[in-house]
Amino acid sequence: MALVRPGSAQGQNQPAKLRWGELDEDDGEDLDFLLPPKQVIGPDENGIKKVIEYKFNDEGNKVKITTITRTRKLANARLSKRAVERRSWPKFGDAVHEDVGARLTMVSTEEILLERPRALGKAEEPKNAGDSLAQIGKGGTSLKLCRVCGKKGDHWSAQCPYKDLAPQTGPFSDKAPTSDATTAVPGAGKSTYVPPGLRAGAERTGTDMRRRNDENSVRVTNLSEDTREPDLLELFRPFGAVSRVYVALDKDTQVSRGFGFVNFVNREDAQRAINKLNGYGYDNLILRVEWATPRAN
């Protein structure tokens, strides 16, 4: 305060103990008596307290500062008397000899989110399927016939979005899947190992799951090391329902590796997020946001 008030006399008149730090204090005290006293009004029944203070501002003018605070009584965590008593119970059984190093109780290093399966209040599934069909079918001609789903004119069978839902057949096999399975089992020479979960007739939950997880996946690179999953979620949530957020962490150090993935429930939302956030400055770095390339199978 004293520094910006060159006109104040006290400082100059006492050159003997011209100390910058003390000067400040002296100064304040000397002038404070000029101010009206501090007024405290309340707190009233709503817990509203009004404090009126006066002080000099940087230019030496008198300023009135009114601070209104409301103190709300939180419903204090209601612990029953018995529960409080139990808190001080001595440990027993194996817990007595538990040393601090045992680390039986740990707080997870991973942030777990309640993963939402779909957007708010919408029946998403059919729409999604139609959407991905439309994406692939763009510019399609009527010659295309899909052998997997039987759709005409939309896509080739290789691009069928339901490809991995269909029973697995051998690489060049035109046979029905059932006969394929029977020949593969007794170890026919050319066939490679097929995990039981992927064999024909097995419950196809695995690939189904993967499909959902990789849908509408957006890759975010050039993240700062401090960015965690909740931060990313906060950044991307305004664009639409997010089903998964993942930030790659170094296995040993738990430090972010600088990239992550965000899965959207809707493809349009993901596209909007890409348009908006690619090149966006986040935490001093320029984000790069793009469609994630599908995992190579």
Binding site: I112, L114, E115, R116, P117, R118, P195, P196, G197, T205, G206, T207, M209, R210, N213
Partner: peptide
């Protein structure tokens, strides 16, 4: 025998009345 993600080792939350899935932990 299957992909680890296929295990579905999550606690699934459902709305009691609408029977709709809310999320998974």
């Amino acid at each position: 025998t299957t992909d680890h993600r296929a295990g579905k080792f999550e606690a699934k939350f459902y709305d009691k009345i609408l029977q709709e899935e809310i999320g998974g932990v």
